[in-house]
């Protein structure tokens, strides 16, 4: 049994399966208002802590809100903002890392020592500190995660640019009369971006975790907005009587992170080794 499961995870089927799961999650995020059976923030204390029924397929929480609807709506925030963090920190990292690696010299030194400084702190602590400065709220959390996350991309981009710079086609492009900007645009970025986008899928899992963790600590999404981490936070007082309130969002977070990690790993297996250099 275990070997069979392991086989599936290692096979070529991982990419289609994970893409399908992701596709379904994205569809849910977009069409949440049509799919959800109930209003996710409508409080009705008459129905509080209901067991699953036809009206509330996953039961209700301590304020009588439909668990399933809240999870479905929560997809929007968790997935959407994780995507936002991913894209924006990748872009910042790409710009700074490529610039730093290509130019070299004291600019490179200064930028990379700054990155080292940020990397020296544990990720979550730094985000926590930044949120402490900005004040609690979803926007502030997103900003804080972005400000920390780009450093990893910048380091990786810089390293790849440095090794790429040694290739003769960069020298040949210079001799062909291409400007610096054109070399970066045509020769460097197309060669460093694909492997890092693959690595980025791994980071997506972290982004979702970070948002959820901040919400769990009460710093991210403010009630009554539905978000998975915040739902766990709210459900923790009822862990003895109604553990399912925490369980459902926890399972969904796990599903998303596992999906992203498997997808990232499968993609990097497929696309990183076959490259020529």
């Amino acid at each position: 049994m275990m070997t069979r499961i392991r086989k599936i995870f290692r096979s070529q089927k991982v990419i289609p399966i994970c893409s399908m799961v992701l596709g379904i999650l994205i569809i849910i995020a977009i069409f949440a208002p049509w799919i959800a059976p109930n209003d996710p923030i409508a409080v009705n204390l008459v129905y509080k802590l209901q067991p699953p029924s036809w009206e509330f397929p996953l039961g209700t929480d301590h304020l009588g809100r439909c668990n399933l609807s809240r999870i479905l709506y929560g997809t929007r925030i968790s997935l959407g903002f994780a995507m936002l963090i991913f894209i924006s920190s990748l872009s910042i990292g790409l710009i700074i890392g490529t610039f730093s690696g290509y130019r070299g010299g004291w600019i490179d030194h200064a930028l990379m020592r700054f990155c080292d400084g940020i990397l020296a702190f544990p990720n979550l602590i730094l985000i926590l500190g930044l949120v402490g400065i900005f004040g609690p709220g979803l926007k502030q959390v997103i900003l804080a995660i972005m400000l920390v996350q780009w450093v990893y991309y910048a380091r990786m981009f810089r390293g790849m640019v440095l090794s790429l710079k040694e290739h003769n086609f960069i020298a040949a492009a210079k001799i062909s009369g291409s400007s610096q900007w054109k070399i970066i645009k045509n020769h460097i970025v197309p060669n460093v971006l694909p492997p890092l986008v693959v690595m980025g899928t791994l980071e997506m899992g972290w982004a979702i975790m970070d948002i959820s963790a901040m919400s769990f600590l009460g710093l991210g999404v403010q009630p009554p907005t539905p978000e998975w981490g915040a739902m766990i936070h709210e459900g923790k007082s009822y862990i003895r009587t109604n553990p399912e309130i925490m369980l459902y969002p926890g399972l969904v977070i796990m599903l998303v992170i596992v999906t992203f990690n498997l997808l990232g790993e499968a993609l990097s297996d497929r696309y990183s080794i076959k490259r020529r250099f």
Partner: peptide, 20 residues
């Protein structure tokens, strides 16, 4: 001058961008 000075390197694979 640049245009009148060209080059052919030893390693033909690394002198071309693999994605072009």
């Amino acid at each position: 001058i640049r245009r009148n000075l060209q080059v052919v390197f030893q390693d033909s694979y690394s002198s071309v961008n693999p994605r072009m």
